[in-house]
Design a binder for these strands. Structure first.
Lengths: 129, 129
DNA sequence: GACTTATTGACATTCATTATCAATAAGACT
DNA sequence: AGTCTTATTGATAATGAATGTCAATAAGTC
């Protein structure tokens, strides 16, 4: 049977992902890693992220322009309010929504319900241009 | 200012979409239209679908393999509960969440707040395998 | 250290979606 | 009806994220 091997590349991806706030694309992670001097390959980043998904150490959503965004998972769960102009991000917690989400899931016969909630808007600064 | 023009192509896409049950990809719609004798171009199908999205006459989700799926849609804004195994989709309406979203946005100085909410879970069928 | 083979990484490939742009036709105006 | 403006179309090229390929590398074992 195939035996998993531990490589610095996988650790690097895991670490870079946990350092990132919010959702990050595989390409962004690759760039960040290179900016920090790593020589990791793009394909390897994709493979490491796929492994993290399977292992449940990360989850993903697809952004509006169609690319997959990843997030470290297992830490505290929260959501973001993002300015669609400048990218300013405000963390929000949403206990009501958490409860609502799991309730809806159960009412429809779904289990293991996870959710992705992102709010986009125009922040004060960008509006006041 | 730009003036919208009505073409048989847009009507064809709108009609084909409303005839389709469930979610359909742009490529599938294009094939269906050609199978019915239409000579509509693929790019035009994409453009018509984009217009329908903007007009609120259709909504879309991204399938597990990354492509956009479209569906004719009523006027009301709603969200989806999707089985992460088989793709079974249940419509949910979320008045509470709508209110919560705009409230949070305003409280943080954001205007024009839009949101994306997706719930993923395991449906009864897939769980019982 | 030697060996097996999982993993890497540079590159090619796939494929959905978008951009390009000349040709067409919708709507307005006479 | 004819003319004119330009929004729209459609064939094709281009983009770009994601995956496949495969020789070279290195993790874990003995």
């Amino acid at each position: 049977m195939t035996v998993k091997r531990n490589t610095w590349q996988k650790d690097a991806v895991r670490h870079a992902l946990s350092e990132s706030a919010g959702f990050v694309s595989a390409q962004q992670l690759h760039q960040v890693l290179h900016a920090h001097g790593s020589t990791i390959g793009l394909a390897t980043v994709y493979r490491a992220l796929a492994d993290l998904l399977l292992a449940g150490d990360a989850d993903s959503i697809t952004s509006t322009d169609g690319q997959l965004l990843y997030r470290a998972c297992g830490t505290s769960h929260h959501h973001h309010l993002v300015c669609r102009e400048c990218g300013l991000t405000v963390e929000i917690d949403a206990d009501q929504v958490e409860a609502w989400a799991s309730g809806i899931g159960g009412a429809n016969g779904f289990t293991d319900v996870s959710h992705t909630i992102e709010l986009f808007g125009l922040c004060r600064g960008c509006r006041g241009l």
